[in-house]
Amino acid sequence: MAELPVRLTVNGETVEKTAEPRMTLADFLRERCGLTGTHLGCEHGACGACTLLVEGAAVRSCLMFAVQADGLDVTTVEGIAAPDGTLSPVQAAMRDCHGLQCGFCTPGFVMSITALLRDNPKPTDEEIREGLSGNFCRCTGYQGILAAVHQAAETA
């Protein structure tokens, strides 16, 4: 199948590559850009593991084609910590609160929480639970994750 040019910004860097029209944004980032932090847990938009930011909006990258991101600004989990490696408040809170175990769903949660707190810096517990109900975790029972969102909201 013919490949089309794709030009986008990923974590602040301009990326110019090609992709088949059917290649998902997730696969494009993982295979063409070497950014394997975006994980695929279901490939049908249910589990949220592949969540990233497109033009600032939290998006499931398994449901978007790379060619649809042409000309857009994408932020992946690799672009969340400070350039010197300092964890973002969300990442630090996840670590402090034991918000991750196997770490496979974690990038999706980091991205969803980052977007959630940007849009609603002081969410209620109910708003947090609603906001994260599209991200699955099978290890933590969500206990540490929910605690981390509260902590990140309080320290921000």
């Binding site: 932090g37 964890l87 670590r95 770490g103 974690t106 990038p107």
Partner: peptide, 17 residues
């Protein structure tokens, strides 16, 4: 605190895929 967390929180873990 866990030593695993730094790499997993920043997208630098190494899973089989």
């Amino acid at each position: 605190p866990r030593v695993e967390d730094g790499r997993l929180l920043t997208g630098h873990g190494t899973f089989v895929d």
